[in-house]
């Protein structure tokens, strides 16, 4: 009974939760965590499409591997940036990151 649309629905729900987090959180680390949620939702969609649309190949899983690689690089550099900014400004509140505003 459970088919591809259900998995895609789960992926969309998690993705939208991630979007909401990115748009409304104040803490920069929380925003990065929401981005990770969005990447996970994309992976769920890739793997479900792989299983139901092309089960005799593994292209969807391959793309998920690359998404995981990029996500790992993104979170490492992102958290390093947050720590670097924290050292300069003593805050991780996104509303205080306004050096480029005038």
């Amino acid at each position: 009974m459970i088919g591809l649309p259900h998995y895609l629905l789960l992926g969309s729900i998690v993705f939208c939760i991630g979007v909401f987090g990115v748009l409304t959180r104040r803490n920069a680390v929380a925003v990065l965590m929401s981005v990770e949620l969005m990447l996970n939702a994309v992976n769920i969609n890739f793997i479900a499409a792989n299983k139901y649309i092309a089960p005799d190949t593994a292209v969807g899983q391959l793309f998920s591997v690359f998404v995981i690689v990029v996500a790992a690089a993104e979170i490492a550099v992102g958290l390093a940036l947050v720590i670097s900014v924290y050292r300069q400004r003593r805050t991780v509140d996104l509303h205080d990151f306004n050096l480029l505003k005038w």
Binding site: Y7, I44, I47, A48, N50, P55, Q61, S64, I68
Partner: peptide, 11 residues
């Protein structure tokens, strides 16, 4: 767990 359910145990 979703990946395991979708036959992608490696992922």
């Amino acid at each position: 767990a979703i990946y395991f359910q979708l036959n992608s145990s490696f992922l």
